[in-house]
């Protein structure tokens, strides 16, 4: 029995950094924001408890439309990332061997050694009116005018897919790697076409990876700030911009806090709905991813 208190102390000490991290940096600010979001300004410097900040979101079309737009585009980005990442992950997991496999994973990782802001600025250099793509198109005579590729939804989606790719490839490749080669062979042997084997064997097997990757990419995309602002410009209208505007421009912290909470709750609801629709459970996903 004498060992027990010492053991629990050790456990506590080992867990302390994690608990402090979660408590101070995640739970505490969220509680603070939650409390803040329920305070309404009734007069200068006078605040009262109320749901007004939340009602504002539903009554002012700009806000909920911005959120709907953000959510829709994030779903599109997630789907595009999945479609692009799947063959890459399949190649890394099933075809590439040894050094090639390590090289390919490293190539996926390499862009993330550079800050997101710098990467986004890189895209701007490529896409802007005086940028590389416009210049090349002019040089080879496809067009005689400069073309602006920036500041539209396409540019935003491009940038977000690029940023999400790695977070999709890694869980997908992990899931696909555990698929026994003989199971795929059995799929062919029993008469399955490539498409049947992909649809009935490979994809169901990779489902936990698909779900994990999609959740990560969706959450990162919904909460992204720099990419939509820089690549979308004035047309960007991302929900995080509204939060930024409330906190920084309008100096309406309670409103910004309410938007922050709404972003958390609504995007979680979308993930939950996605899981229900595909018949997946978060538990099995977390276990396998």
């Amino acid at each position: 029995m004498s060992k027990k208190p010492a053991q629990s102390l050790t456990l506590f000490l080992l867990l302390a950094p994690a608990i402090l991290w979660l408590g101070l940096l995640i739970v505490l600010p969220h509680v603070e924001i939650l409390v803040l979001s329920f305070s309404e300004r009734v007069a200068p410097r006078v605040y009262a408890f109320g749901f007004g900040n939340y009602l504002e979101f539903f009554t002012e079309p700009l806000y909920w439309r911005t959120f709907a737009r953000t959510a829709t585009m994030s779903i599109i980005v997630t789907a595009l990332t999945l479609v692009l990442a799947f063959p890459i992950a399949l190649y890394i997991a099933r075809v590439a061997r040894g050094r090639l496999k390590a090289m390919l994973l490293l190539l996926c990782l390499l862009p993330f050694w550079v800050s997101e802001l710098v990467r986004t600025l890189g895209w701007m250099m490529l896409l802007r009116e005086t940028g590389v793509i416009s210049y090349v198109l002019q040089a080879i005579g496809v067009t005689d005018q400069r073309i602006e590729f920036l500041y539209n939804d396409g540019a935003v989606i491009l940038g977000l897919v690029y940023g999400g790719l790695l977070f999709m490839i890694v869980p997908l490749a992990n899931a696909l790697e555990s698929l026994e080669p003989s199971v795929v062979e059995a799929g062919f042997d029993l008469g399955g076409s490539r498409w049947t084997v992909l649809r009935r064997i490979v994809i169901p097997h990779a489902m936990p990876g698909i779900v994990a990757g999609s959740i990560i990419v969706f959450m990162l995309t919904v909460g992204n700030f720099a990419t939509p602002v820089l690549l979308g410009g004035k047309n960007g209208l991302w929900f995080t911009e509204q939060i930024y505007a409330q906190f920084i421009t309008r100096f309406n912290w309670p409103q910004g806090a309410a938007f922050g909470m709404l972003l958390l709750v609504l995007s979680s609801a979308i993930v939950w709905a996605g899981l229900r629709l595909t018949g997946q459970s978060l538990g099995t996903t977390l276990k396998q991813a």
Binding site: E180, S182, V183, E185, A186, G187, I201, P204, H205
Partner: peptide, 13 residues
């Protein structure tokens, strides 16, 4: 048709 050494049953079905 082949019966594999590992049997290779489809675990997802």
């Amino acid at each position: 048709n082949m019966v594999f050494q590992s049997l290779a049953l489809f675990p997802m079905m």
